[in-house]
């Protein structure tokens, strides 16, 4: 009975996906980062909207965060 209730635990994302996920999410993250900096550099100080800056930054950091996590995992640094 005990043997039935014991089940192996594996990672929430299959390990084989890590490199692909890392590349995809980092690419998206870097594109959004680029758009953030283009916005920062081109729009003059008075016309900049804080909400837009923060939301672009948040989206970029979510993608960069997960992307770099998967990059670490794919390169063998299991955090």
């Amino acid at each position: 009975m005990e043997a039935q209730s014991v089940k192996p635990i594996s990672s929430p994302v299959p390990e084989a996906w890590y490199p692909t996920l890392a590349v995809l999410m980092l690419a998206v993250g870097l594109i959004v980062t680029a758009s953030f900096f283009i916005y920062e550099a081109t729009i003059s100080k008075k016309n900049r909207s804080l909400a837009k800056e923060l939301s672009t930054g948040a989206v970029a950091s979510v993608f960069l965060g997960f992307g770099s996590l998967f990059l670490l995992l794919a390169s063998g640094v299991y955090v």
């Binding site: 920062e40 800056e53 948040a58 965060g65």
Partner: peptide, 25 residues
């Protein structure tokens, strides 16, 4: 608790963006 590490990375990047915003302003 599994999402501690990604959350930490995300907040790290987010602080960077906030720092950029503050610098630009």
């Amino acid at each position: 608790s599994l999402f501690r590490e990604p959350l930490m990375l995300i907040s790290g990047f987010f602080f960077f963006f906030v720092a950029c915003i503050i610098y630009m302003r």
